Amino acid sequence: MAKMKEYANCVALLADLVGSRLGDRTRSHAAVLDAIEVTNAAVPALDPLRVTVGDELQGIYGSLGEAFRAGWSLRAALLDVADLRFGLGGGEVRVVDAERGIQDGSAWYLAREAIAWVEGLSDDPGYRSVRTAVRDERPMATPAADALVRLVEAAAAGLRPGTRRSLQGLLDGLDNATVAQREGISPSANSQRVNSNGLRVLADAVAALGELP
């Protein structure tokens, strides 16, 4: 009998579309597939992102930082098209049936608990910006990560789409002129976006979360 494959001290990412039954499902599904491809190319994974039952996405990562970066990449790629909520669970994953993609383990239980918590807050005005929760039982877990992720999300939620793209330009390491050209604005206008919205500080925080163990 073949030995069951296991991932110890990993982070499971579970995502679903917010309001997925509204709007153009064909367009949003195609965009999600494109975003998955971009994210899988950009963020290393133990088990790459894929669409599972219904509108859910899942992937397994070697660190919380990688799982956070994957979620951020997906949301950036889907800006103005679709929104996602995420549950990140730190623990273990056992591959029960590799052929059918059936997995088990504490990381998935915790990811499911996390995304259910996010969904439960969807009608609370005070938590309208919340899209991600972290439940991490690994020895290397960062206890403050759950709150810090929400703090970054709250800061990003107040930005207009163009400003979000300028933020992403910083995260991608692009210079001011390149971002401005991509946005169809002058370099001075992009600099004003960056400075008036504190984008460098926010980019530093996003980058720091992306390095968590």
Rank of each mutant, 00 (worst) to 15 (best):
V201R: 15
D146W: 01
L84V: 08
R164F: 00
Y127I: 10
S196Q: 14
L17E: 04
F86T: 09
Y127A: 13
G101S: 14
D104T: 07
L212T: 04
L46Y: 08
L199K: 08
A12Y: 01
L46G: 09
A156N: 07
A180S: 12
A154E: 08
R94T: 04
K3H: 08
Q168L: 04
G59R: 04
E211K: 09
E6Y: 04
V118D: 04
P48N: 12
G91T: 10
G184E: 05
Y7M: 02
P139A: 15
R200D: 15
V149E: 03
T142N: 15
L159V: 09
R100C: 06
R27N: 08
W117C: 08
L171T: 07
S73H: 14
A42G: 05
R100W: 08
K5D: 13
S20M: 10
A12E: 07
Y127R: 15
V81L: 10
C10L: 09
D123T: 15
A42K: 12
V179K: 08
D55M: 09
G89V: 05
L84P: 13
G91V: 02
E183S: 09
R200F: 14
V201A: 15
D34W: 06
Q103S: 13
R135M: 10
E99P: 10
W108P: 02
E211F: 14
V32Q: 04
V11T: 07
G105S: 11
W108C: 05
L78G: 10
L159M: 04
V149G: 05
R138M: 14
Y109Q: 02
L78C: 06
A133S: 03
Y7C: 02
L49N: 05
G89C: 01
P125I: 13
A154S: 09
E37Q: 06
F86W: 07
Q58A: 02
G23S: 06
G65H: 03
V149Q: 11
V95A: 07
Q168D: 04
A205C: 12
D16H: 00
E99C: 00
A156H: 08
A203M: 13
V11D: 02
K3L: 11
W72E: 15
Y109N: 11
S63W: 05
S28D: 12
W72Q: 08
A155G: 02
I115M: 00
R85C: 13
A67K: 03
R182K: 11
L170C: 03
I115W: 00
R25T: 15
A177W: 12
G59V: 06
E37D: 07
R131A: 09
L110K: 09
R94Y: 07
D123G: 12
D16C: 05
P48G: 06
A144S: 15
R193T: 04
Q181P: 01
V53S: 07
S20T: 11
L209P: 12
L84S: 13
N176V: 15
V11S: 02
T163I: 00
R100N: 10
L170Q: 05
M1W: 11
I102A: 11
S28W: 00
T142Y: 14
T178H: 09
L49S: 10
D146P: 10
G91N: 03
V93Q: 03
A133G: 03
W72K: 10
E6H: 06
R200T: 09
